[in-house]
Design a binder for these strands. Structure first.
Lengths: 152, 152
DNA sequence: ATAAATGTTAAAGGATACTTTAAGTCAACC
DNA sequence: GGTTGACTTAAAGTATCCTTTAACATTTAT
């Protein structure tokens, strides 16, 4: 099967203009054209899947392009491509870890606000809490990345 | 205890200029000043923790400012503040879910590249694989957010 | 007490990732 | 065969989030 840019965009949850932008950035190698119009086929989808995944986990366009260029060079670059993917996997794992930490913090805040509501005012809650409810800034973990979602 | 902007920036893993920027955006309410110089104390840290958390999970500055403005109004806004936090928790949960999905995809790609390396070339691998190794674009989940890490 | 380090603001600059606009082409329908 | 709708490009515009610069004040160290 083959698809228009609009159909593909819908499937990926992005705008057609986004796909054109990706193409312009060199992130969509070897898209067939008929009369200048892009035609996506099943083989393109394999790459769109992984592209989407890299995009949504915030691999910069620049790095994705690196990957694309390597892939174009063929089997000699399998190792380098693997490195890029493994690195990205590490970032994802790290992001997930961080997210769990952030989630806990937010859940504490949520609990805190609910308690304040139950007691009627925040001051009452503060008075009822031990001096430090287990949260100190210097226990804060380490991160480095960004994460991006949207449709995927 | 009290701290300079530089010390706080280091603790949070951001630059002093970032904190000044946050301040300018109205994200740092009620910071004490001595001769114009910002002095952060333990009470500020409570907010910096949650601010950091909201920032790193990509709550837009605009929305964080909303929260700040609500907090300034006192106990009458506890409910609205709770809504904002609960909404953010939902986004974090969603992001985590998405990340697990992305992780699987990337791990498949990693396996794929390793296999291709083992076999010597990609074509050999493709020939050895069933037609569709369980990955179809139309199974792709749903997202809407961004995630941000860094130090937290 | 003077030099170096650190602080301040306002404004401009940079990075990244799209999105929109304008002008135009092409296939399809009435 | 003309209008509609989807496609095209190039270029400018938008959004978001800082970062850098310049010019100046204050604090700290020698």
């Amino acid at each position: 099967m083959s698809y228009t840019i609009k159909e593909v965009a819908e499937m990926m949850g992005v705008k057609p203009s986004t796909l054109r932008y990706y193409d312009g950035e060199g992130l969509l190698p070897n898209i067939k054209r008929v009369n200048g119009i892009r035609i996506f086929d099943d083989k393109d989808f394999k790459w769109l899947r992984i592209l989407n995944c890299l995009k949504k986990t915030n691999m910069p366009s620049k790095k994705i392009k690196e990957y694309v260029e390597l892939a174009k060079l063929g089997d000699e670059t399998l190792n380098d491509r693997l490195s890029l993917i493994t690195e990205q996997k590490g970032k994802i794992l790290n992001d997930i870890k961080n997210y769990h930490y952030f989630l806990k913090e937010i859940e504490y805040k949520e609990w805190y606000l609910k308690e304040a509501l139950r007691l009627g005012d925040e001051k009452a809650l503060l008075d009822s809490l031990p001096d430090k409810a287990g949260f100190e800034l210097d226990k804060i973990p380490e991160t480095k990345t960004k994460v991006q979602n949207g449709k995927y």
